[in-house]
Write a protein that binds this DNA or RNA. Sequence first.
DNA 1: CGACACCTTGAAGAGGTTCAAGAAATGTGG
DNA 2: CCACATTTCTTGAACCTCTTCAAGGTGTCG
Lengths: 250, 250
Amino acid sequence: MPLEAFKVACSQCSWHDLLCVPAGLPSKTVQARLGGLVASWRGIKPGDTLFSSGTPFTALYAIQTGFFKTSATTTNGCEQVTGFYMAGEVIGLDGIASDRYTCEAIALEAAHVCVMPYARISALTREMPGLQTCLDKIMSREIVRQHNVMLMLGGMRAEERIAAFLLDLSHRMHVRGFSRSDLVLRMSRGEIGSYLGLKLETVSRTFSRLAEQGILEVKQRNVHIRDIKALHAMLNIGAQMQDAAYLHTP
Amino acid sequence: MPLEAFKVACSQCSWHDLLCVPAGLPSKTVQARLGGLVASWRGIKPGDTLFSSGTPFTALYAIQTGFFKTSATTTNGCEQVTGFYMAGEVIGLDGIASDRYTCEAIALEAAHVCVMPYARISALTREMPGLQTCLDKIMSREIVRQHNVMLMLGGMRAEERIAAFLLDLSHRMHVRGFSRSDLVLRMSRGEIGSYLGLKLETVSRTFSRLAEQGILEVKQRNVHIRDIKALHAMLNIGAQMQDAAYLHTP
DNA sequence: CGACACCTTGAAGAGGTTCAAGAAATGTGG
DNA sequence: CCACATTTCTTGAACCTCTTCAAGGTGTCG
């Protein structure tokens, strides 16, 4: 599909009001101005890098189609996937802090993104105060998402992490109008493992075990959730009485 | 000390230009207006809650003095410390997303905070565009910080986590004019463990081992770093050749 | 078809957890 | 100010989950 097909003004974008640029912007004439936000569009091939760590920060990217992973690297060279992002989500927020991106964004499938130069966002914000709140919310949402990742990495067992991961993916697909139970994973077992703080073998084994239990059907990257309630249950039961065990052990 | 003593205009605050409200705001007359940011001041006793999860979001808080932890709670009641915050840092950013705080902030020692209602920030932003960038940077910095936590939780061994934790603390104290090698921990072993994804026993054992090796001197919550280079080395060596092991194992 | 990347599965091993007990600091009330 | 209760920290030993190492299977693309 030609890039031209993806040159859509924000006010007419299917993600408008839903995710990328939430509602709450007053008049239609003001909304029309949103067009100024996007300087250009870019098509990215699977495996290609949208931006990488250390590169000067210039723009935020709104994903129109496709799927990305972002990953950070420790001083010793260990890579950690910090997030998976799909259509309607915004990436590059980490770059604002120091005028350089601090992580790397790689397309896991063919993608199209809106390029929103930060300078333009700032300028538009002056005319449209509502846009400010909008950006604030996008960043705050990212902070809350990362809190949830910390909850996973901090205290959950492998099974619980996988359950939380699948439920999150399922939910986000559902919001976008896709099946909540039929998932096509865009990432490898290794990438899932990196994100969840597990080794790829553990991810594979856990999938297999959940399949044996009849909760999932797993065929390579196609995952069918047969018992979504069981997945939810895995997160609600279990550590019920651990509570804040580190505060006062009764 | 009376609360009155902490009623300092932003333009004269010792954290101004350093952390809380970075430089880059043009004229002095504009800077004077910053006073409008802070609606009031609050004193918090150790152990008291500044805001808690689910409470309607109204304001961001800039810490003038004292020390806080923030923690999130899973559906099953597991608590996870998501951060430790000291003077000059801003907390409450998670509340913007959904107009409710999603985590809990508890003072670990007597504290004073500036209450900055979000409505005031928004209003001031219209007059002072530079303030916008300032808030963006604060939020972006928090996102980057959390990336680093994910790096710890995702792949590091207990010793490495403790080293990274101590070095971070040491650095932040040093920036504030304190010793880089003499730390007084404001939090319990359990709280450190929760933050690092370890049990309190493991934290204690790791401290003991580092003390045996002559890298630290640990006396309860007083930690003296004897060999800061060794701590740095623990993060740089070790997993050197793991690289992105999950991508292509050679 | 063959090469390559990806996924699965097994068995042995390590690191951290759990359970348990005791020591050191802190706080409270007489 | 001291004795007692409480909280916090330390340390040991058994256990368990996940990792590591290794091999074989599956899918995909030139």
